[in-house]
Design a protein around this nucleic acid. Sequence first.
DNA 1: TTGTATGCGTTATCAT
DNA 2: ATGATAACGCATACAA
Lengths: 319, 319
Amino acid sequence: MTNIRDLAQMAGVSVTTVSRVLNNYPYVSEEKRKAVMDVIRKTNYQKNINAVHLSKGRTNLIGVVLPYFDTPYFSLVLKGITIQAKIYNYNLVLFQTEYRVDREIEALQMLKQKQIDALVICSRISDISIIKKHLQFGPIVLCEDLAGSQFSTTFVDHYKVFQQALEYLYEKGHRKIGYCIGRKSGTNSRMRELAYIDFHKKHHLPFDPEYIINRCLYFEDGDRAFQHIKKLKNPPTALLVTSDQVAAGIVISCQKEGISIPDNLAIISFNNEPIAKMMNITTIEIPLTKMGENLFLQAIDDKISNKEISVNLIERGTV
Amino acid sequence: MTNIRDLAQMAGVSVTTVSRVLNNYPYVSEEKRKAVMDVIRKTNYQKNINAVHLSKGRTNLIGVVLPYFDTPYFSLVLKGITIQAKIYNYNLVLFQTEYRVDREIEALQMLKQKQIDALVICSRISDISIIKKHLQFGPIVLCEDLAGSQFSTTFVDHYKVFQQALEYLYEKGHRKIGYCIGRKSGTNSRMRELAYIDFHKKHHLPFDPEYIINRCLYFEDGDRAFQHIKKLKNPPTALLVTSDQVAAGIVISCQKEGISIPDNLAIISFNNEPIAKMMNITTIEIPLTKMGENLFLQAIDDKISNKEISVNLIERGTV
DNA sequence: TTGTATGCGTTATCAT
DNA sequence: ATGATAACGCATACAA
């Protein structure tokens, strides 16, 4: 492998001059520039980027932590991150954690070792105090409302949104409302649970833990959710579903079994993925790609900032 | 940031000894090892991995090129790659190309610059000759049958499989068979097309280009495919569908519109994703995760090898 | 405008 | 068992 010193010798200039040419710096005469360009072409020279990294102290690599790639929610966030990464000439190192702590620690480790310049955590499993300890090694951006922390964040006020959705269903006459969620832990899930509990308190409605259906991520989980509520003696008349995919699965199962939507079961889902439009599902649109873009920009920004993202109810046929 | 030299000084030993301790080499006395360990703990020292990379000439990073993260096909392959990567202590740099050449070139560029040790290309858009030129910079593994090339490959014989599926439908009495495919270009897609053409020649069946439906990747594409064949004067009685997701979408649309499966329309899909079981879809199981694992192992192997993966028809209710 | 010299943090080689 | 020192390949402060 030819290096910058070889080039210098072959072109009859100094390594500095070669470096200047390589990085398009001014103050290099046309003839020397040409001479260097020639040997670059002749040798098929390519920079060793690791040397650049070591010398500069940074890698232009951003780590992205997320549980799954194959759910629309995260793949849309990732899309946004990718868009801005490309613009700013960064590459991404992706960590699919499946909510396993060790995978998340690995990402933090890479930050510590300076293999990545910053870390975007789209959804975390480990304790916030663990993450905070790594802030000294580089920027860490999160997707949840952590007011007053030293993290940059981009988040949806899930308490407020869930509350509004519940009130909307209440006004439509629903008194037995359940919800499907990806996981029970996590700030965002707990905010939704809190909104759910507070809603029931406010309206003096009984709280039935059977109305909360966990681990709902994929289309086929919709069928499981449906089977679950079908078995209940006193099933809910409405569901909030935190993914359009799952909602679609529920709708399909209802159709199969002759349950009429929205008459027998009303559904509001989240994200407004293409499938929601195809299946005419009422959904709360979250601008996930925009969120992703913002997350990236915060990751490469020295200043910490917190940005709330607003959502948008799209009324279709399931309420 | 404290470095290895600082540690050496603080522990009263040489940098070599520190390096030996850090990398668990033998030949270092217990007392010196302990002294070094102490200062490591005290200083919260962390290796700068970029220096390791420069010194060693490799990064323990493998690039993975794929068009989409959010289709089960690729996310399952990726899962397999991830499993082995973890075992061998490698990290992944993912390139979601969406079949844009520039994104693919970027991956090849990183190989050239030694930022990644090897490259796994799950599906390519650029010409094979372009890719071949980069073989000098590191191993490149592909997912297609390229007999006699210098690439390592893991592949399914899509010609054979498609042919068998077509013959299976023929035996069941079908004479008008169409298929849904992700894209028309690409070795694997062309192999399937070739099998399709040869099948029609062999049985002296008319070839109708309207029977081939392109760009079928997601659930909602199934509805589009359905709408397409519904409009045909002489619609197919059977479909091969290269993704269970799409097949599920077709099944749903058929149910909606009262088309009976398999009586009015038979379907064989591919992959055997969870949704295929849920919807009782006859499918050809491809061990995608196993494929991914093998792809990774080939990437870190110096020898080139070519491995054909065999598939498995799972008979359910759509034929 | 150009070049010299040094630093980046580690691993590897070769003495001792 | 231990250490001095030379790579690794580039960027850059400083000098000229």
